[in-house]
Design a protein around this nucleic acid. Structure first.
Lengths: 220, 220
DNA sequence: TAGATTGTTAATCGATTAACAATC
DNA sequence: TAGATTGTTAATCGATTAACAATC
């Protein structure tokens, strides 16, 4: 086992491995090879072996990986078993959707508090949670040991919310608003902005065939 | 202007550039340098210049980039002006959120039809759209020239929906379900699965400090 | 002109892939 | 043993960054 610096690319793939392994487990598959995983995920088998080897020796030569054992190991690496408390800011449609989503999934993240600054939202119920005013944010985060904030407010309010989360001592942010946020570097920020995903998708739809089509360049 | 193969990494950054440029434009900034863009986006200025140079010469030496002109150029590259019709499959909370989102944004994608297979959903209204049964999918996609499908059904139904979209002749898919989908390679598929984003976020929260902590390595 | 900043080539860095000894 | 597949080193590939001539 070695423990050099793990690259972001590797960490991003771990949840993918976990997902496929869970599917295999559901189908009662006992063992899987890097080759098979590679086919399912469109990844090079050597890459998968290398990724896993950063964290330990989980396979058996000539055999492959035990599905249950590898699931357990990856869950340990991601520390999935330990539930992290999350505050959601922005009780709009998307916020509501995430809260509901949260109820059904046995995820490692649990939405523990919901905040919104619109008077008509404050006090309303989402599942068993009551929407609180933003003025309660810092207090609530400290009281309940909330470590992550999910931002689902409009883009122009996102930076303000990020600032308040920062001041309240949050450790990580998942931002759904289509805005780039400035936070201190000790705070981990991930983006879940599907508008950008749609834009890049549009690029590929409209440039379909460019790759084989050297002649079609529009040079002025 | 050259037009070699554009890498995915470059295409992913174009929407970021557009976003920052739009913000600058809103603040009536006329001109911006790659240096300034780099600070805002945490990117190397040389990278920004190189990315843009794949598509043309948009800047002026000694001056920088004209904000309005560059916005226009990037919009042309992404073909944002041309509206692409989208079908949404899965009229749950998330689907509803996306429909509503769609109403307000002047995006390049427009949700034109909504489908769901639950009898209690079919026939209900979302904005000015009526939820249709899945049996109408292929017909509707062809009739309205719908090019993209957004999948917001539960994970275990996602592959079926992807298959139906494929058969209906869709060109691109944005998948919100936490599932890896098999589609023919001519279909472009993008993932917007925030559960994976949360898992990798959890990794970093729990491994905070690993990087500066050479002594804590368990080497042989 | 002097200062700034682009577009682009060359150098560097890091990530992916190939190859293979070890071994189940 | 023969076949399969890991873990890991070395080779390759591609993306990022540095450097700088061109020029506004």
């Amino acid at each position: 086992m070695k423990q050099t610096k793990i690259s972001e690319a590797v960490v991003k793939r771990l949840p993918l491995y976990l997902q496929v392994l869970n599917e295999l487990h559901a189908r009662e598959v006992q063992t899987v090879s890097s080759q098979e995983l590679g086919v399912k995920l469109d990844l090079n088998p050597a890459q998968i072996r290398k990724d896993l080897a950063y964290f330990g020796e989980f396979g058996r030569k000539g055999v492959g990986y035990d599905v249950v054992y590898l699931i357990e190991k990856i869950r340990q690496i991601l520390k999935v078993n330990q539930t992290i408390k999350v505050a959601l800011i922005g009780a709009g449609n998307l916020g509501l959707a995430l809260c509901n989503y949260n109820k059904y999934s046995k995820d490692n993240m649990q939405i523990t508090a919901v905040f919104d600054n619109h008077p008509e939202k404050v006090g309303s119920s989402i599942g068993h949670l009551t929407v609180q005013p933003m003025s309660k944010l810092a207090e609530s985060i400290k009281e309940h040991n909330i470590r992550v904030g999910i931002i689902t407010v409009p883009a122009h309010e996102a930076q303000n919310v990020a600032n308040e989360l920062t001041n309240a001592g949050i450790e990580g942010i998942l931002n759904f608003a289509p805005a780039i946020l400035r936070v201190p570097e000790e705070i981990r920020i991930h983006y879940a902005d599907f508008t950008k995903e749609l834009l890049s998708l549009a690029y590929y739809l409209n440039h379909e065939g460019d790759e084989n089509d050297e002649s079609a360049m529009d040079t002025e």
